[in-house]
Design a binder for these strands. Structure first.
Length: 280
DNA sequence: TGTGCCTCTAGAGGATCGTA
DNA sequence: TACGATCCTCTAGAGGCACA
């Protein structure tokens, strides 16, 4: 059994039984919420191994390489939600809002062991999400978003203590890469150059591109383009009357030709075809 | 750990074509 | 005629290497 709201970005929800992607390390530029219902599984994140028990919930900054190593002799059940952080930003701008993305940004990868009533509440929230995971209209779509923000608040309360205790990044190198990601996420809609990063972070562009690739496995511009294409897909989804040209400039591309090519490479369809799919 | 330089590849931008 | 896709050329940026 497998359900999915959006097959790919900006948001995807899945509940799987015995459908593990076993032993394959992967990374992505989305954040991930992983909930383990049952089975036998070791979850590998970077150089850490988590032996999972039912009720374990893992938050992931997808850039770190990770994979689930599952024992096929046991029924494996898990829920996963991949999401683009840009997509949650409007909810962070509300008066009195809590930065529910902070655990993903600062802790990056963290396991919460939910038991008893907490476990029941997590499963109820996931069930709600599953219910809205029909994507028939904007009502279901927005109810899914609101339910997901509720889940993020639920997760946040378990992260408050580790966030307070958290020390700074173990190395300057990782701190620099986080600074690059933060800068790119805030300025992806503008005309970005390596010189800007050089000036902003006071490090040479040669060094910045090198450490970014070392830590994340992708180049700064690969990351930037993924971010822009994700945002374009969100705009096509939410503003069905927006033209390809408008979306192109809105997300920071200066040339339609380049946008069209990058979009087709990442999504598999041209922007216009994707837009038409969203309108039907 | 951080910088500088060089080479080569992939991205940027202009021109052109296709289609509604 | 406007919009979007594709082709082609040039250059910016990634990656490798040496060095402080």
């Amino acid at each position: 059994m497998e359900t999915s709201l959006f097959p790919k970005d900006p948001f995807s929800f899945g509940y799987n039984i015995n459908r593990p992607i076993q032993g394959v390390f992967h990374s992505h530029n989305q954040y991930e919420v992983y909930y383990f219902h049952g089975g036998k599984c070791n979850y590998l994140i970077g150089d850490k191994i988590y032996v999972l028990a039912p009720g374990d919930l893992i938050i992931l900054n997808g850039m770190t390489l990770h994979c689930a190593n599952v024992d096929p002799d046991y029924e494996y059940r898990r829920s996963t939600i991949h999401f683009d952080p840009v997509y949650i930003r409007p909810f962070l701008e509300l008066t009195g809002a809590v930065n529910v993305l902070k655990p993903f940004q600062d802790l990056r990868n963290y396991r919460i062991q939910l038991r008893g009533q907490d476990k029941e509440e997590a499963e109820r929230l996931l069930l709600n999400l599953s219910g809205f995971n029909r994507r028939k209209d904007l009502i279901d779509f927005n109810r899914f978003r609101l339910a997901f923000v509720d889940l993020l608040y639920f997760i946040y309360q378990f992260c408050q203590k580790p966030l307070e205790e958290k020390q700074e990044f173990p190395t300057d190198k990782e701190k620099h890469v986080q600074d690059i990601i933060s800068f790119v996420e805030s300025h992806y809609g503008e005309d970005l150059h390596m010189e800007q990063l050089e000036r902003e972070l006071h490090l040479s562009k040669y060094y910045l591109s090198k450490i970014f690739k070392d830590v994340t496995g992708v180049t700064i511009f690969d990351y930037l383009y993924q971010l822009r294409i994700n945002q374009a897909k969100i705009l096509f989804l939410l503003y069905k009357d927006m033209s390809v040209t408008e979306v192109c400039y809105q997300v920071g591309f200066k040339h339609l030709a380049h946008f069209s090519r990058m979009f087709k490479t990442q999504v598999g369809n041209t922007p216009e075809k994707f837009r038409k799919q969203m309108r039907t």
